[in-house]
Amino acid sequence: MSILVYAEHDNAQLKTETHKLVTAALQLGEKVHILVAGHQCGAVARQAASVEGVSEVFVADNEAYAYQLAENIGALVVSLADNYSHVVAAATTTGKNFMPRVAALLDVAQISDVIAIESADTFIRPIYAGNAIATVQSQDSIKVMTVRVSAFDAAAEGNDAPLVELDTVIENQQVTFEHAEMTKSERPELTAANIVISGGRGMQDGENFSMLESIADKLGAAVGASRAAVDAGFVPNDMQVGQTGKIVAPQLYIAVGISGAIQHLAGMKDAKVIVAINKDPEAPIFQVADYGLVADLFIALPELDSALT
């Protein structure tokens, strides 16, 4: 069985999601290939070749793939899929965008958000915002799946797999990239950070998030948010943690001024240790917290900040 892994990257750097996908792929079979599709992504391809367990890296380097548009990437992956028993991508906004197209064009189902692999055809995935865990079996000839990378460890680097250039160019004329506004941050990425500190509606406004940022910098943490905080415009959308935002599983998750709605819990309840700071002792977040502190965040956060120095 050969497995095709779609590399997660930004044309400059391979993301750790890819290393985690490789770990998942190696549980499916021995022959793992990576596809790097992008523009001027040579460095990414070389890094992909260094991931342990990878036997070949395909590189599709073309302007058409610069923004990884679903129409182009979907068709590119389909053009390779026949050689594989499994096609695997991360359950990120990139993977979620193009993979269902791959599945539809191959006339197979997609298994979304796999958190564990039982065997080559049997997978475990959360449903109902993680309130139920389903074990599903696929009878399709090619298994197309997205993987929740927070559930897998990253494969190490140190390999030197061969690179194969692909000259397939697929450029759909129905879609044009206009522009992107990417959030810039010096902090670790939410999905990769060991510690995440998130704020909710209780933060009251965007400026108050600087209290979380200051603590985050002392802890080497990423900053996240609840939907209510994003909807209210306190912080950008890509900071939303939850059922329909990012799924995180850090060593430590600190929820500040967040009530703990099931949709939020869906995104963080696999953290190793959960801390909740909330002024309402009845807040549901305390039911999942390992350590709960009933306090006004405007008092607790400055205290926490100065205690950390």
Binding site: I274, D290, G292, L293
Partner: peptide, 28 residues
């Protein structure tokens, strides 16, 4: 007809009950 079959559906693992702390110093 679907080519996916659900073998079983189980509840998620429950987290062990946590503790409440009195203040920031105890938390740390």
């Amino acid at each position: 007809t679907s080519r996916i079959s659900t073998l079983k559906v189980t509840p998620p693992p429950v987290r062990a009950a946590g503790v409440m702390v009195e203040n920031v110093a105890e938390l740390l």
